[in-house]
């Protein structure tokens, strides 16, 4: 068995008008990306908005079908999965999305939201599910009574904690996170990021973490891929990418990270 859990091979995605009366003009959101994530490690994908990083993540989650190329989990092409195998994949790989405001069904309580994955995969009975949800809420640092609240009654940071809880309740192998902290205040960002990192280490999760924020990526990633205009321009170990960036774009990105020492001097 290879040590790569997730392998993305020459994946492209072309969005375009596909109507009868429309000219078939395509936009390449992702263009021939090849990446791999080792078991237990975190790949950070960084890039500006429109660089195709979210599209890539959605293809790895089997939410968008690639125009070409394959995504493999454990050596299996995820788009050939069906029935029980597909269900197993849905249990193995979990998402965390960017926008805390739209990540949850506004008509369900936090308890209902967190119990849903267990119900869908037929894990446990009523009581054991409830106990599991309660334990997980405590683990992500939310009060017990949050279980009966509705999403709009929670803060953005609390919602992202719930999102993390939902992503790990099935004890998955991989968590794919799409800018989970970018909608939050900086102070809250750090707490949520710490929680994510903590839980990831505890459970030995493999992760892909997409962000436009280089500082965030640096904190959580083992490997880093820099994306621009749908392609990966730089890909390597985190220290190497930060210490010795090869591509011009990466250098610009790193130079653009506000350096607090310089800021202090300027003040």
């Amino acid at each position: 068995m290879s040590q790569d859990l997730i392998r993305i091979r020459a994946v492209s995605k072309e969005f375009g008008a596909t109507g009868w009366f429309k000219k078939p003009v395509g936009v390449k959101a992702v263009d021939g990306v090849t990446l791999a994530v080792k078991r237990g490690q975190t790949l950070g994908i960084v890039g500006e908005s429109g660089s195709g990083k979210s599209t890539l993540l959605r293809m790895a989650l089997r939410l968008i079908k690639p125009s070409s190329g394959t995504v493999e989990i454990d050596g299996q092409d995820i788009w050939t999965l069906q029935g029980a195998e597909l269900k197993a994949f849905r249990r193995k790989v979990q998402p965390i999305f960017q926008n805390p405001a739209s990540s949850f069904n506004p008509r369900q309580s936090i308890g209902q939201i967190l119990v849903a994955p267990l119900e869908v995969h037929g894990i446990g009975d009523r009581d054991s599910r409830r106990a599991k949800v309660a334990a997980l809420l405590e683990r992500v640092g939310l009060p017990k009574d949050a279980i009966d609240r509705h999403p709009h009654q929670l803060s953005g940071g609390q919602k992202q904690r719930i999102a993390i809880a939902r992503a790990v309740i099935l004890q998955p192998e991989a968590v794919l996170a799409d800018e989970p902290t970018s909608a939050l205040d900086v102070s809250v960002q750090a707490q949520v990021l710490d929680l994510f990192d903590d839980i990831r280490r505890d459970l030995g999760l493999t992760a892909i973490f997409v962000s436009h924020n280089l500082a965030v990526i640096r904190q959580v990633s083992d490997q880093i891929a820099v994306m621009r205009h749908g392609s990966v321009v730089e890909y390597g170990e985190a220290d190497q990418v930060f210490g010795d960036p090869q591509h011009e774009y990466t250098k610009t990105l790193i130079a653009a990270v506000p350096d607090h020492r310089k800021l202090m001097r300027a003040l």
Binding site: L63, L86, P95, F97, F104, N105, V120, R166, L170
Partner: peptide, 26 residues
Amino acid sequence: REQYVESARAIGMSHARILFREITPN
């Protein structure tokens, strides 16, 4: 377009459950 529907799909919910529990109430 809401992310909770994407989440529901990624969790592995059936079409029926997504239609009745996630979409219709909203």
